[in-house]
Design a protein around this nucleic acid. Structure first.
Length: 757
RNA sequence: UGGGGUAUCGCCAAGCGGUAAGGCACUAGUUUUUGGUACUGGCAUUCGGGGGUUCGAAUCCCUCUACCCCAUCCA
């Protein structure tokens, strides 16, 4: 892997956090991940993200990553896709551990696990048809029902399952289902299918099996069999996590076992990523095959000229999180530009030629020495660049009636030929239609690049080729595939996504010397010698990406974005009404105990909470403080664990609040103490005593600490005095930190305000 | 509609009670024989909305809203 270029992000993503925690706690001694695609389509940049995550985490934490083909559906999968998947991983620079794995390698073991589940009474053979099954499954709001076949005995199930395996039944006649819960709120848990009959030839196991395990069953077990520690997948599998856990838990396997974690899949605007849509584009010949450079497939990106490093960098830069997101294609384009900028030679190629005759130049040409790299790219190399009386420049680089701010050649404005001379326009030749066919110009003999003594100032240097030696080449200009940011259908395709120029003119060294396969065509963009269609007779270059073009942007009609970001008015929904009992409680809390409405409301609506509160209140009559901590802190713990497993009691909470009331400890400390009560179940007073958490309310003491803090943070003091009042919080924090959180924060605040003035 | 998720700048994304990181995009300027690159500066008084707790809240509590996923014998 190219070490120098890729600078990885500093901040950790949530998966790395999980992995580190698991490593630290000793849950796993090695991190094992896997990249588990189904070989039923060509990998795209979304797969690259998954590859980056799985292989990347394995590498970062000295573990390993398996490449596993999830081949449980013989009717869809094919070996040609496994080759494409292998290529993608390798090309991106990753190596998998050992051989490639296949879920089909585990069919025998998975089958045994299925039998075990049947024996445990946790799985059964169902024999209803598809339609009936759907009906029985219920809906998201209504519970489902089990079919009558769920009552089959273990022996019967064993027998039926064996007959399924032996091929005694036709497709769809029977299935094996896990016996979980037909009324589960999670639809995925309503007795999910484990096995179905498929009399089809599998590309690896041939006709050995006619029953195949379903994803949920096979995937969890394959992960387990491979010793995977972190099973990382995309968000849409969140609901499947319950089955994943169910399978591994009920089988009671020897630990350690894998756990599933989900991240958001990659979305990029102006393109599509779904297998279905990609297939449609290829099948419908909207593009030229899976490696069409306009496609976001790995093969396409690769053929277009993207480097693997740039794609890995891109994956790293967009980050890994759980929010559905749509990354701007500009981000990808930036990454490849940044990569290529420091790597590839600059050459000149004229896409749309305009002939220039240098009327004062001699008949015989000359060779100019031209570096392949600009000064800011630390690479060496140059070529002899032919120059002659007749040259071609880009049609865009001449304007008869230039707009304001135009830097290139005009009747009045001279321009430099990159690596060559300065020229000035003398005469414009037009055809009968008024179309410019040629420019007669003069060159300044003393203006040669590198030894210019002409003293002429030009606004820009343009690219060109010498007419006698230029080579004709094909250039394929690619633009984004879709013209709409979030494409819906074929109608959104960009009709100009491919523009082929068959007669571009390139300087000869590019095809003769072939200094590289990727180039920057000076002032235009990065190009790649097409790996398939390129021949010495007919060189073909693909446009990888254009250069940033701030002139083009300026001249284009500025498409205005409505910058009036009017805040959308948010309509609040109805809050569920209180029951009469709750209402009564609410009134008492509010009127009698003087709690504020919000606290009273929360308390009154939650029976567990109010019960806890009432008990604490009997011990200590300090309704407001008690209610506050109970609704804001205790509530969380009550919600998480069932009431009885709480490690602390209402008595202890009362005890804690008593200390707050007496100003023995501050609110801040009270929260700290509470945290410890939650985990250890110790008595609050003991905690305070043991850890010496008594509040410091001595102004002199605090004052001394403040002075120290101010001294250490002189810069911030300046800023504060200059008007950055937010910094007060910073100072309070520092003082509190210095006293181990024990200083009385109110006092700290007061004193700080005085001292900072 | 039940369940599971997610909301921090135009687009990504850190942040885990104490000064709202960073990148892309945008923008202004410097350098430049690429209108490129590089460099410098500007880009969130505010974290989906509203309340509450706290000396102090993007972070804790309550509540509402929006979006995504789940009712394939696909993965």
């Amino acid at each position: 892997m190219n070490k120098g270029l890729i600078i990885m992000k500093k901040s950790k993503n949530f998966l790395q956090t999980i992995v580190e925690k698991d490593l630290q706690s000793g849950k796993y001694k090695e991190i094992i991940t896997r990249f588990p695609p189904e070989p039923n389509g060509f990998p795209h940049i979304g797969h690259a993200k998954s590859i980056f995550i799985n292989f990347g985490i394995a590498r970062d934490y000295n573990g390993h990553c398996n490449l596993r083909m999830d081949d449980t559906n013989p009717t869809k999968e094919d070996t040609k896709y496994v080759e494409a998947l292998k290529d993608a991983v390798l090309w991106l620079g990753y190596r998998w551990e050992g051989n490639i794995h296949f879920t089909s390698d585990y069919f025998t073991q998975i089958h045994e696990y299925a039998i075990k589940l049947i024996t445990m009474g946790k799985a059964y053979v169902d024999s209803v048809d598809e339609e009936k099954m759907r009906e029985l499954r219920g809906t998201v709001t209504e519970a489902g029902k089990r079919s009558k076949y769920a009552k089959r005995t273990v022996a019967e199930n064993l027998d039926m399952f064996e007959r399924m395996r032996k091929g005694e039944f036709k497709d769809g006649e029977h299935v094996l289902r896990a016996k979980i819960d037909m009324s589960s709120a999670n639809m995925k848990m309503r007795d999910p299918l484990m096995y179905r009959i498929r009399h089809a030839e599998h590309f690896r196991t041939g006709n050995k099996w006619c029953i195949y395990p379903m994803y949920d069953f096979a995937h969890s077990l394959s992960d387990y069999i491979e010793g995977v520690s972190h099973s990382i997948c995309t968000l849409e599998f969140e609901n499947n996590r319950d089955i994943y856990n169910w399978v591994l838990d009920t089988l009671d396997l020897t630990p350690p076992r894998p756990y599933q974690h989900e991240f958001a899949r990659l979305g990029i605007n102006y393109t599509v990523m779904s297998k279905r849509k990609l297939l449609e584009l290829v099948k419908g010949k909207y593009v030229n095959g899976w490696d069409d450079p306009r496609l976001p497939t790995i093969a396409g990106l690769r053929r277009k000229g993207y480097t693997p490093e740039s794609i890995v960098t891109f994956c790293d830069k967009v980050g890994i999180a759980k929010a559905n997101s749509m990354v701007d294609i500009a981000q990808l384009e930036f990454t490849i530009r940044a990569d290529l900028n420091t790597k590839v030679p600059r050459v000149m190629c004229v896409l749309n030629p305009l002939k220039i005759t240098l009327v004062n130049y001699r008949e015989k040409g000359e060779k100019l020495d031209a570096s392949y790299y600009p000064d800011d790219v630390p690479k060496k190399g140059s070529r002899a660049l032919p120059f002659s009386r007749e040259i071609y420049i880009e049609r865009d680089d001449f304007e008869e009636n230039p707009p304001k701010g135009y830097f290139r050649l005009t009747p009045e404005q001279p321009v430099r030929l990159k690596h060559g001379y300065i020229i000035a326009c003398k005469e414009i030749i037009k055809d009968i239609n008024g179309c410019i066919t040629e420019i007669k110009a003069e060159y300044y003999p003393t203006s040669q690049s590198g030894s210019d003594s002409s003293g002429i100032k030009v606004k820009s240097a343009i690219h060109w080729v010498s007419a006698d030696t230029a080579k004709r080449v094909e250039v394929r200009l690619y633009d984004r595939l879709y013209s709409s940011e979030i494409p819906e259908s074929i109608e959104d395709l960009n009709p100009n996504s491919l523009k082929v120029i068959t007669d571009a003119l390139i300087e000869p060294a590019v095809v003769n010397e072939k200094p590289d396969e990727r180039f920057q065509f000076e002032r235009q963009g990065y190009f790649y010698a097409d790996p398939i269609d390129y021949t010495d007779e007919k060189p073909v270059y693909n446009k990888i990406v254009g250069l940033k073009d701030s002139w083009g942007k300026k001249t284009k009609v500025t498409l205005q974005k409505s910058q009036t970001k009017e805040k959308k008015e948010q309509i609040d929904g109805e809050v569920v009404a209180m029951t009469p009992e709750q209402e009564k409680l609410f009134d008492r809390y509010k009127k009698e105990l003087k709690l504020n409405s919000e606290i009273a409301n929360t308390l009154a609506r939650d029976a567990d909470l109010s019960a806890f509160f009432e008990m604490a209140l009997k011990v200590l009559y300090s309704p407001i403080n008690l209610a506050n901590i109970i609704t804001n802190e205790v509530a969380r713990e009550i919600k998480q664990s069932s009431k009885d497993s709480l490690k602390f009691t209402p008595n202890q909470i009362a005890e804690l609040i008593e200390m707050v009331d007496k100003a023995t400890i501050s609110n801040k400390i009270a929260k700290q103490v509470f945290e410890e009560m939650v985990t250890s179940g110790a008595n609050p007073k003991e905690i305070v005593e043991k850890r010496g958490l008594l509040q410091i309310s001595d102004p002199d003491h605090i004052g001394r600490v403040i002075d120290e803090v101010i001294e250490k943070n002189y810069e911030n003091l300046e800023k504060f005095r200059a008007g950055n009042k937010k910094l007060l919080g910073f100072f309070v924090g520092q003082v509190l930190k210095a006293t181990g959180g024990k200083a009385n924060p109110k006092l700290v605040n007061q004193l700080l305000v005085q001292k900072l003035g």
